[in-house]
């Protein structure tokens, strides 16, 4: 870190990036919003990894959390509601050299864009997807989201939401070709950072379900969890996240879970007594779509013209 190596010598980089180099506009999220913590964690990872800002792209949809790219000083694509994933996959398809991050919310990803979610998991293109789950539509002012809890009062369900909430972690684990699923909480910056860091380093589609507080509309939802760490089950493993013991010590309930164990991951994702956080599943051996979408990129102009002429020959009479 900071170019300082273990033998105290300095690795002088031609370009060295500080946190500031990744800071865009001042975040306009509400004070106390969980998104601030995620932004800080991502900027830290960019700095720690010394990602070239020009080679980094944040793609988002529409919603509070989808304002994320504006607060970074990298390339960004703030597109349509629900459509971050097709755009991100398109970016990666012929530009494997770019680092792609996706910011999407529970409405964006799991409702209007749900069709893209399962297919993007299947494509398994190398990107880090952050699901900001605050159980509510914030930007449009408190409508029920697919993860809203039964009884939760919203502007579209003033007498309480009725449907059982969707479980994005569990759902993602069920999609074909899933390669990385983790869950974290915005109020534990150490765990948040460690989880996103593991997700970023995973080669493939890394899906991070972030429980994120909305002080405006769902302030109470995570309050108990935040105040009482015994409601949380910390997953740790030598292949998973190894938290600083000082932080890990907060958690009464801990469990060693091997991220290769898919069955156990599914069982954990369905638990309702405790909230498990950590890496549920990771398998880097799954095929990645960019392995085929990038084929032919190196072809020269002469080769292309020759190829085209061969194609035209097929129609010659």
């Amino acid at each position: 870190m900071f170019g300082l190596k273990k033998d105290w010598s300095l690795d002088v980089l031609p370009r060295y990036f500080t946190l500031e180099d990744y800071e865009g506009a001042i975040a306009r999220w509400c004070p106390g919003c969980g998104d601030h913590a995620v932004l800080a964690a991502v900027q830290r990872i960019c700095r720690d990894e010394q990602l070239l800002p020009e080679k980094t792209i944040i793609v988002s949809g529409i919603g509070c959390s989808s304002r994320f790219p504006h607060y970074m000083k990298t390339y960004g694509f703030h597109g349509l509601h629900g459509r971050a994933l097709p755009v991100a996959c398109g970016v990666k398809a012929r530009r494997p050299d770019l680092h792609v991050w996706v910011a999407t919310g529970d409405g964006d990803c799991c409702s209007i864009g749900a069709g893209h979610w399962l297919h993007a998991v299947r494509y398994n293109m190398d990107m880090t997807v952050m699901l900001f789950d605050n159980n509510i539509y914030g930007l449009t002012k408190a409508q029920t989201s697919p993860t809203s809890r039964p009884g939760q009062r919203t502007n579209t369900h003033p007498f309480g939401a009725w449907l059982p909430p969707l479980n994005p972690t569990l759902a993602t684990l069920g999609f074909t070709n899933v390669s990385f699923v983790a869950k974290t909480v915005d109020w534990n910056p150490v765990h948040l950072h460690a989880t996103l860091d593991a997700a970023f380093k995973h080669k493939g589609f890394s899906f991070v379900h972030i429980h994120q507080r909305c002080p405006q509309y769902t302030a109470k939802i995570y309050e108990a969890m935040q105040q009482d760490p015994s409601t949380i089950l910390l997953l740790n493993h030598e292949n998973g996240i190894q938290l600083d013991p000082a932080v890990a010590g907060m958690y009464e309930h801990q469990m060693a879970h091997d991220p290769l164990n898919h069955n156990e991951a599914v069982a954990l994702a369905g638990r309702e007594d405790l909230l498990p956080i950590g890496i549920f599943f990771q398998n880097e051996s799954r095929p990645r779509y960019e392995q085929v979408t990038t084929i032919g990129m190196e072809m020269t102009t002469e080769e292309r013209i020759a190829g085209l002429n061969r194609e035209l020959d097929r129609f010659a009479i």
Binding site: V59, F77, L80, P86, V87, C89, G90, A93, R94
Partner: peptide, 9 residues
């Protein structure tokens, strides 16, 4: 959307 992402890049 995929085509747009590709083109943006």
């Amino acid at each position: 959307g995929f085509a747009i992402g590709c083109s943006y890049a």
